[in-house]
């Protein structure tokens, strides 16, 4: 559970990012306490995915700073430092992005074995435990093409967890799923959050955000328009823009 006074484990300060001439992030700042859950909502194209990608160090930023645990995300030089960062913070994508030529179990095992150079036997045990945790122990030898969307997404979550991250980033992980399977993926995330995993989620599942989030950020046009506890932000939005957005999706 969030430790109220501790230093944030993720801290963004005035982050700017652009693709060519198009400025996508225009000064974003926020922090996430260890064990905290932050939900990011906002219209399409407002830069939510880009923001998560920046936190994961997948795309460079133009100015500002992003700190995750002890790492300045955009000031890492050696491969070791980058590996160390990716051990801290792991990302789950909307389109699952499993490796199609590997089984579910192999998908989970690959990074710990080849990147972290851990003992394959021990990794295998942990991978099986993780697949069990997401309810897919029976599917460990299935290839991604043989799994449903919800199952693939849960494998993807297990794959990220295999890196033993401190922070998990979820980018609209239920957006490509049908309503039935959304639930199974959300249950997995809920369980993680309850165990004290720090989570940053981009999501349009408002009920889920309301239930789990410690803080909700509403982004539009590359800035954070409004942020607050879910009850405040959803029930008493202060800004017109937020109100307009919420009235559309609720």
């Amino acid at each position: 559970m969030p430790e109220a006074n501790s230093e944030p484990i993720v801290a963004l300060r005035d982050v700017h990012q652009s693709f060519g001439d198009v400025e996508v992030l225009k000064g974003v700042s926020f922090g996430v306490a260890k064990g905290g859950v932050v939900c990011i909502i906002g219209p399409s194209g407002s830069g939510k995915s880009t923001l998560l990608r920046c936190i994961n160090g997948l795309v460079p930023i133009k100015s500002g700073s992003i700190r995750v645990a002890d790492f300045e995300v955009h000031n890492l030089h050696t491969d070791q430092e980058k590996i160390a960062l990716r051990k801290e913070v792991s990302m789950v994508f909307q389109q699952y992005n499993l490796f199609p030529h590997k089984t579910a179990l192999e998908n989970v095992m690959m990074a710990p074995i080849y990147v972290l150079k851990e003992d394959p036997k021990e990794v295998r045990e942990r991978a099986i435990a993780l697949l069990t945790k997401v309810g897919l122990a029976a599917k460990q030898d299935a290839y991604p093409g043989e799994l449903s969307g919800g199952q693939q997404q849960r494998v993807a979550i297990a794959r990220s967890l295999a890196m033993r991250p401190e922070v998990m980033l979820f980018d609209e992980v239920t957006a490509a799923l049908d309503p039935e399977t959304v639930k199974e993926v959300l249950n997995t995330i809920r369980e993680l959050a309850r165990e004290g995993m720090t989570c940053i989620l981009v999501t349009h599942e408002m009920r889920f955000a309301r239930e789990l989030a410690d803080e909700v950020l509403f982004t539009d046009g590359g800035t954070i328009v409004e942020s607050g506890r879910p009850a405040e932000l959803f029930d008493h939005p202060r800004k017109d823009r937020t109100r307009a957005f919420l009235s559309q999706i609720l």
Binding site: R53, N56, L58, D79, K82, I83, L85, R86, K87, S90, M91, F93, Q95, N97, L98, F99, P100, H101, M110, A111, Y114, V115, L116, R159, S160, M163
Partner: peptide, 24 residues
């Protein structure tokens, strides 16, 4: 997105190419 997934799991470019992209 396959490169991206590999990068987010800390594979470097060479590892991603050999273990993830090229086999496909």
């Amino acid at each position: 997105t396959q490169w991206e997934a590999a990068a987010s799991l800390a594979f470097n470019r060479r590892q991603a190419l050999w273990m993830i992209i090229f086999p496909q």
